[in-house]
Design a protein around this nucleic acid. Structure first.
Length: 219
DNA sequence: GCGACAG
DNA sequence: ATCTTGTCGC
């Protein structure tokens, strides 16, 4: 899929989303402990300028092994449920610049925890063919009980009668994050990785590194 | 009809 | 997403 035929209206985006949705793989392909984890994030300025950043970390020590960025102009407005069409172009461009193929992608948004079960993490996974999951800071859909206050506590996120993700407490007493599978990885695995990526802070180290890099790339 | 609504 | 000082807590 190229920039030329990228959807520019909500109707077109919905059609593309529906087409891609059929290619999502729910089976878990992701290794038990992938050698590396790659975080994705995008920063914005006041003039439709956007900068995407991807950072690959060694899973064991969470040290950076490779990082890439891509600057561009926003080509799609923010719209809940169609968020992927805004961040996907620069993210895919940045991912293309990586020399080492990622083992698993960690997105700043949702995967299956989406009104049509196909959020950013699903798009990224399907379009790259790589395992991917999402870690959101706030809820998009679903209801859930409050997880216990200790790090590691989690509660299922339910929408339309099905479990679409998990609400996970990554640090004692902090606001929980929303974890959901995207492609070729299951929820349990995504939750386990999320905890491995949050030894000290609320958000995954992958997201923190990508966030910081995208901001500097914007200036 | 009235909210809710990833980043 | 982004705009921002002080302030509560360990």
């Amino acid at each position: 899929m190229h920039t030329e035929d990228w959807p520019s209206t909500a109707e077109e985006a919905l059609a593309v989303q529906e087409r891609l949705r059929d290619r999502v793989e729910l089976a878990d392909d992701c290794p038990e402990l992938p050698p590396t984890v790659t975080g994705l994030d995008v920063a914005y300025d006041d003039n439709d300028g956007i900068a995407a950043a991807v950072v690959t970390l060694e899973t064991a020590g969470l040290t950076v092994v490779e990082q890439r960025t891509h600057r561009a102009k926003a080509v799609f407005p923010y719209e809940p449920g169609l968020f992927a069409f805004r961040e996907l172009p620069p993210l895919l461009a940045a991912l293309d610049r990586l020399e080492r193929t990622p083992d698993v992608l960690v997105c700043d948004g949702h995967g299956l925890a989406h009104p049509r079960r196909f959020g950013l993490a699903c798009h990224v996974g399907v379009l790259t063919g790589l395992p991917a999951f999402g870690v959101g800071k706030t809820r998009l859909v679903g209801t859930h009980a409050a997880p216990a206050s200790a790090r590691g506590a989690a509660e299922p996120l339910v929408d339309g009668g099905e479990v679409v993700g998990a609400v996970v407490r990554t640090q004692d007493g902090v606001k929980p994050v929303y974890v959901s599978a995207g492609h070729r990885i299951d929820l349990a695995h995504a939750c386990r990785l999320t905890l491995a990526l949050t030894p000290r802070y609320r958000l995954p180290e992958t997201t923190r590194q990508a966030d910081r890099l995208s901001r500097t790339a914007l200036r």
